[in-house]
């Protein structure tokens, strides 16, 4: 049985019902889409590094997504997602003007950004989305920033123009060499370090294996590195404990203690293992629901 949806959602200080309207939808490449969603509570308070949980429809899964951008005036929040599973495919079917069932946040700790001489961001694929507001904030704080964006091919390199607005250097790495350097983001990073560029900090956001490899290099050169973890979770408020990660031998909840952590302390192998806990079910769900 359902609890009927006669629940009022009245926004702070205004007698406006909050419904989560998709005010803008954009296809970034064949696998990645952007949505700007009206979500006043989130837009009013969120900071770079924080995330939201979205539920596309009644009975839907709760899916965490890191915030890519926000507009306090328009009260909107931008999410960028890769269409990879049942729920993101469902989301992808929604059009501008449609609504999503639930959109809650901001969750997690804001990224610990501080003033220093130079920071480089390293993004893998859709990881460029959560990296973007972090670097932009650093640039606004007066910190010179560079970025390395990686993707399978030119088409999968996203947000390049947006980064160019405030980054001193935008480096690109693609697996097939169709744009920028042929190879991995880690190669570009190591080249820069070897060439003598001094970075006070690295912020790496992307697939776990990419972040693990970035940390391998930055450890060697002793450059502090923050990574953003996106483990499986349900509520996002500290209730389920499903998102527990091993940070320097201690168990932390990514939802309340993170999602950003000191990359040197993260047990990436355990994260990768836990990420796969429901792999078979993801498959079965798509078959079971005819997708």
């Amino acid at each position: 049985m359902q609890i009927p949806c006669i629940i009022k959602r009245r926004y702070f200080k205004k007698e406006v019902y909050v419904v989560y309207k998709i005010v803008k939808k954009q296809t970034l490449n064949q696998a990645v889409e952007l949505m700007e969603i009206h979500a006043p509570y989130v837009a009013r308070k969120c900071e770079p590094g924080q995330f939201i949980i979205i539920r596309v429809d009644e009975d839907g899964e709760r899916v965490p997504l890191t915030i890519a951008d926000y507009d306090r005036e328009k009260e909107t929040v931008t999410i960028i997602y890769q269409v990879v599973g049942y729920t993101t495919e469902l989301l992808s079917k929604k059009a501008e003007g449609d609504y999503v069932q639930d959109f809650v946040g901001p969750l997690g700790q804001p990224a610990p950004l501080h003033k220093c001489d130079r920071v480089i961001g390293v993004a893998g694929g859709v990881g460029a989305a959560p990296l973007y507001p972090q670097l932009r904030k650093l640039a606004k704080m007066g910190v010179p920033v560079d970025v390395i964006i990686g993707g399978k091919s030119a088409e999968f390199v996203i947000l390049k123009e947006l980064f160019e607005e405030f980054c001193d250097n935008v480096y690109i790495a693609t697996d097939d060499g169709s744009l920028g350097t042929k190879g991995f983001v880690t190669t570009v990073l190591e080249d820069q370090i070897k060439a003598g560029v001094k970075y006070d900090e690295v912020i790496a956001i992307g697939p776990l294996i990419m972040m693990k490899n970035v940390v391998k290099i930055t450890k060697e050169y002793d450059i502090p590195t923050m990574v953003s973890l996106n483990p499986i979770m349900i509520d996002g408020t500290g209730m389920c404990g499903g998102c527990r990660v091993n940070i320097g031998g201690e168990t932390k909840f990514a939802c309340v203690d993170g999602p950003d952590f000191d990359g040197f302390k993260v047990n990436f192998d355990e994260c990768m293992q836990r990420q796969g806990m429901f792999r078979e079910e993801e498959h079965e769900c798509r078959i079971g629901r005819g997708m």
């Binding site: 009022k8 959602r9 009245r10 702070f12 909050v18 639930d102 959109f103 809650v104 408020t237």
Partner: peptide
């Protein structure tokens, strides 16, 4: 009674 779901007191407000 009004019930506002999806509001995390301490985060959303």
């Amino acid at each position: 009674v009004d019930i506002e779901t999806n509001v995390i007191v301490g985060r959303s407000i």
